[in-house]
Design a protein around this nucleic acid. Structure first.
Lengths: 167, 167
DNA sequence: AATTTACGTCAGCCTTGTTGACTTTCCAAG
DNA sequence: CTTGGAAAGTCAACAAGGCTGACGTAAATT
């Protein structure tokens, strides 16, 4: 199966699955994730915020007006955990929480101007690294990168991930 | 999108670098890392150990006899943080710490039989997901995956990563 | 002999995750 | 209209796993 299209001859393609190859993949994932988070972390370090705040800002920016419950399932944390982060962002005037118009139980979340500024700064740093890596690796590698990452997600998340921004 | 082909004409290859493409890559990284850690986390959850213990076991398994300082620089944490983890593993008889023969200040770390058993269980779970993703994506994608991950690491780590288990 | 290195440890702090319990608000079904 | 339950918020307590700072010891290096 998955006899990967342009792949090499025949059985050789299975050599990718030695424990040693897999171990290197695992370690690459570990080290790369560190690089991936390091730039935003450095920026946050001065302020009173952490990685959790960055994540909240990111996903509110991505879909303005999202509800708390939405955010909860995307981030995969408890509402108490998210709430603590969200409260500081709201108190500090980076996020605005509007009561729902149809369903007034819901709170819709938006970035304020100041929130958008911080989010930009953080994501600019993260994108810069991503862009450099993409450029260095080339389009074909990027396609493979995305394909493997998607195959590594939990199925429910993958479905959601592929649905939005789809074809 | 997904300009796919091995070598698209000229300027098209830059279309990969839109903010939207980069954002999707960033989110893919976030979601995939969650999947990547979820299986070992689930196993650890019952025991008294966490992700930090898994990391220590992994790197001791990878290079038996490694010193504490070595481990420190690979994991990128403080010695106090590592020590807390290492102490429990040693006390519980999963890791053995031997005084260095040449340099008696150093401690060389080894997995005990029991330690090796747990490490196996954890890495089997993680490898299983990795293997499934690799199989689903195919050899070409795997190559690209590795290339982009390596380009995303901090330069020092990348050098070290590429040196060992090299060509 | 003095200094540096490697390691261990105590103490205290922070972030970010967890459970559990309780309240308020509000929609919707009976 | 009443009530059941979902969505949200809040309080409290706790744990993992980071961090800094300070101190001690043994061994190697200068």
């Amino acid at each position: 199966m998955a006899e990967g299209g342009p792949g090499p001859g025949g059985g050789e393609s299975l050599l990718f699955l030695t424990d040693e190859q897999l171990r290197k993949g695992i370690e690459a994932m570990f080290f790369a994730y560190r690089g991936f988070t390091s730039d935003p972390d450095r920026i946050l370090e001065g302020l009173d915020y952490g990685r959790a705040h960055h994540r909240a800002l990111h996903f509110i920016q991505r879909s303005p007006g999202t509800t708390v419950n939405n955010l909860l399932s995307i981030l995969g944390v408890t509402k108490q955990s998210l709430n603590r982060v969200l409260r500081t962002l709201i108190d500090d005037g980076l996020v605005e929480s509007r009561v729902g118009r149809q369903d007034k139980r819901e709170r819709h979340l938006y970035l304020t101007d100041r929130g958008a500024v911080l989010e930009r700064e953080l994501s600019d740093a993260q994108r810069a690294r991503m862009r450099a890596a993409y450029r260095a690796a080339g389009p074909v590698a990027v396609q493979g990168f995305r394909t493997v990452l998607e195959a590594m997600m939990d199925p429910d998340l993958r479905r959601q991930f592929l649905r939005e921004g789809g074809p």
